[in-house]
Structure formats: structure tokens, C-alpha cells
Design a protein around this nucleic acid. Structure first.
Lengths: 210, 210
DNA sequence: ACAATAAATGAATGTGAAGTCATATTCATA
DNA sequence: TATGAATATGACTTCACATTCATTTATTGT
């Protein structure tokens, strides 16, 4: 958590610090990002930085929180709050769609998030007992889907939850190395097509049916 | 590549260096692993290390090569060389099975491999133009599977290949945090059950069928 | 035995940022 | 406007290793 001092700052200055941090962390992975560069770009002294944050980790966690909250804004809240009114695959569709919408409008934040997602060691370093939230959430959704009778009752929710989490990790690659080098986030229909293909895989697998 | 000097070393000494490196890299992620510790444990002077290897990266790449080659030994070569004689899902089964067998017998190597697999930034740092081999290989298998008529002809091989790669990355988690906290690698039948569940997911998805 | 070449050694050096701290400046309020 | 509390500052200190290098020691060939 940033120190009190940081929140006492005039909005504009605080914004400059955050902007500088976003730029630096989007451009360089955590360990290569430099506090000096952030302070310079924000137009504050390095010492001041340490009036605002305990250390680099403190700043990064704060930034990560901002990103998570921003990401949540993209979810359809009605759907998430009334999970039972919707089908499992509808919910999954919404999760992926909101992810892509978020990516489209927040390229800088996505870069930072991917850096974090692609580095388990860093996750452990920052949240020493990091437990995979996405795993827990998928497992919850799966259990509800089973209860609703939408899912094959023979599935092992723990295992499938891991597999879905694994698929989630591939989202970064799908974004950056999509079909033709890179997915076009502006192409709404192509994007929905991609999501539909992913859902088709998750729903029906890839075996040929007669 | 290690220097000539390294290969001129008496086998025993060379083995000590390799052993020490495996221990260190299994215990600590790349950037925390210390050359000093490796030299100490191998019983050589720090300077000698630099007679054998250009630098830390050189050593790590060499170790990574050893691991890849060791892993290849676990594949059923007949199957891999005569891919066309076998079905897509048989081949996939063999890939997973060989992975688990390898993990079981080489816990230290698996730790090192996971460290690498879980850190894209490191991959880029070590092989600056790292291209995902697993992606290419899956795509090849998928195309052959399509040609053989085993797979749903509507799949997008590039996308599915990414999804399978994502699932592959989750293998580490499945190993270490399987159903009850940890998969029991000694339980051969439980292990095959896990593989079968994974294959069932990939084949048929998770939608309930009537 | 004598060069000449190769290998071994570990103290010394280099590096690159994180984080500190003594001092200066600003601000709030009585 | 006086006073202490809160902020701001950037030169300096630390730290943890990787890497180098001048010497010493061993090996090989004649």
C-alpha cells in the first residue's frame, strides 16, 4: 500500500507518478523497470518516490490493483452477480469478451498484466502465498454448471479448472500471435469468431463427429 | 556452448560441475542461482568456471539442452517416427505419458524445466528469438489428424494449437497441485487416469450430451 | 630435462540499480 | 509571521553477484 503522503498529493502529481509507472512497467518487465526512470519521468526526485511508496514492490502491487479494478469494470455486472440466471457457456463467453474489450482499450495495462501472468516466479515474489484465483473461480463456475445440468457429469472439476486456467494463459499468445501474426482487436466480429471457436473447443472438443 | 576446455575435463570432474549446476538451478530460479555456489559445490575455483563456460547463460543453455535430450529419450521413438501409423489421440496420449514418466524419474530436471516454462521473459532473454516449438509441433499434428479424418474439419488449427500449448503449460500445475494437493507420480494408474481425463476434455469438451 | 601450451586459481574489479539520509523547502495554523 | 510538521531532494551508500586477470601449476611433445 502506498503511504498516506501519496494520497495527500495533488491529483495531478499523483497522476503523473502513476502514468510514469504504467509507462515504465509496460515497457520493461518488473526487474528491469527502474524507479529512477519513473521518478524522472514523473518529474519528482527519487527520494520523493520513497515518501510515497515503501519500495518498488509496493508500487507494483498498487499498479496491479489498479489494473485488476479496471479489468472488473469491463465485466457485465448483471451477469456476474446473477450467475444462476445465465448458462455456463454464456458466462464464459462474457469473461472472454470482456477480456478482449479490456485489452483493446488498455494496451498498456495488458502489457503489464501479461508480464505478470507469464512469470510465476514474480507472482510468488510479490504475493508470497499467491493462490491461483482464476483456478478457484473456474472451479466454482464448473460446479454451478454441473448443478444446472449443462456439463458432462463425469468431468473432474479440479482438473478441468486447471485446463481452463491453462487456456487462459494462452490468451496472451492468442492476442499477440493470433492467426495472422496478431489479432485485430478492432475487428469486433473476428474477435467474437475467435471467442466462439474457443468455446466450441471447450464445449465439444476436436474429435470428428459423424 | 561450453568451451573446449570443458569437454577436455576428466569425466568425473565434468560430471561434478553438471551435478552442481543441476542442483543450483533446481533450487533457485535462473537469476537467483549463483555461479559461486555451483563452483563451490563442484569443488572448482570460480575462475575455472569461466574456463569452461562463456558465462552463466552459456551454462544454463547447455543444461537446458541436456534436459531436452533427456526428455526425448522418454518418447516412444517408433511412434514419433511413424506418426502416420498412429492416431492423433494416441500420439497425444504418448506425449503426455512420456512427460509424466520423465517427471517421475527426473524431479530435478522437471523443476528446472518448469522454471523456464513459467517465465517467458527468461525464454526471450536466453533465446532472443524464441519461437514456440510446441505450438508448431501441435499444429503439425493437428493438420495430420485432419488429413486422416480424425478431427472436426471446422477447427482452426492455429487457434487450437495455441489452446493445446496453453494446456501444456498447465501441466506443471497439474503435477504440483493435482487433485489432492499433489499428483502422485508413483501411482501409474492414477496418472493414466489423469491423462485420459485430459484427452477426454480435448476430444469431447465438457458439454453434457444426451 | 626443457619449452611450450593448456588449465587452475581466487583476489580484485565492475556493474547497476535499490534504497537511505542529512538537509532544504513548503505548508498549515495559531 | 513564527513554528513545527510534512514534504522534497539527490548525492551517497550498499549490496550481491558476475566477470576478469595476473600468476601459478600441470601436461604434453621433443
Amino acid at each position: 500500500m502506498p503511504k498516506e503522503t501519496f494520497f495527500n498529493l495533488p491529483e495531478q502529481k499523483r497522476a503523473r507518478v502513476i502514468e510514469a509507472a504504467l509507462d515504465e512497467f509496460a515497457a520493461y518487465p518488473y526487474h528491469k523497470a527502474r524507479i529512477t526512470a519513473i521518478a524522472d519521468q514523473a518529474g519528482i526526485a527519487k527520494g520523493s518516490f520513497y515518501q510515497y511508496f515503501a519500495d518498488k514492490k509496493d508500487l507494483f502491487k498498487y499498479i496491479a490493483d489498479l489494473i485488476v479494478n479496471k479489468k472488473l469494470e469491463y465485466l457485465n455486472h448483471d451477469m456476474m452477480l446473477n450467475k444462476d440466471k445465465y448458462g455456463f457457456f454464456e458466462l464464459l463467453h462474457e469473461l472472454y469478451l470482456s477480456g478482449f474489450r479490456f485489452a483493446k482499450e488498455n494496451p498498456r495495462l495488458i502489457d503489464i498484466a501479461n508480464n505478470l501472468l507469464n512469470n510465476k516466479e514474480l507472482q510468488r515474489e510479490l504475493w508470497n502465498d499467491y493462490e491461483d484465483q482464476s483456478f478457484d473461480y473456474f472451479q466454482l463456475l464448473l460446479k454451478e454448471g454441473l448443478a444446472k445440468g449443462e456439463l458432462d457429469p463425469t468431468i473432474d472439476t479440479a482438473l478441468v479448472s486447471r485446463l481452463l486456467t491453462g487456456i487462459n494463459y494462452s490468451l496472451g499468445d492468442i492476442l499477440y500471435k493470433g492467426k495472422d501474426g496478431k489479432i485485430d482487436l478492432d475487428d469486433e466480429s473476428g474477435l467474437i469468431e475467435t471467442i466462439d471457436k474457443m468455446l466450441a473447443f471447450i464445449k465439444n472438443g476436436i474429435k470428428k463427429r459423424e
